[in-house]
Amino acid sequence: MTAEPIQKVSIIVSKGSLEGVYPALIMANGARAEGIEATLFFTFFGLDAIIDKRMDHLKVATVGNPAMHIPTLVGALPGMSSLATKMMNQKMEKLDIPPVREFMEMIADTGCDIYACKATVDMFDLDQEDFCPQVTGIITVGEFYEKSAGASIIFT
């Protein structure tokens, strides 16, 4: 039996670190490139990736991540996160993966809808003007599920 091809994905982004955001963006863009419908839903600290004044300054987390192979105390030193971020950004550029803002514009242009989570927006006292222009709207969890009808939901 051949499995049904994936028609639609809804990707939830809950983390605001650079390494927390990129996988979701790559997956959303990759879905569209394969002709799969895609929706991005940013919640909790993931909102940093669509907050206009923050999205250009996302950082790699160097503490609490054993796969970084940096001892926690070293990772906590001033400048470590900036250094790791700089290195990752250079690597991304080499791989032709755009910076977050450009990536968001590109993804929006592929026809992927981008939403912010209402509960988090209220919690952080934000409104629509705080977000980059690519954000389609601020929606509740209920609306998120409605829009995700028939989709595979991916939580990152």
Binding site: E34, G35, M106, D109, T110, G111
Partner: peptide, 22 residues
């Protein structure tokens, strides 16, 4: 796609219209 848009000068939106579904 990024190269086609950036260097080739074809906007992403247009590319998706011209070659729908991938």
């Amino acid at each position: 796609v990024r190269r086609i848009t950036k260097i080739g000068g074809v906007p992403t939106k247009e590319l998706y219209e011209l070659f729908p579904g991938g």
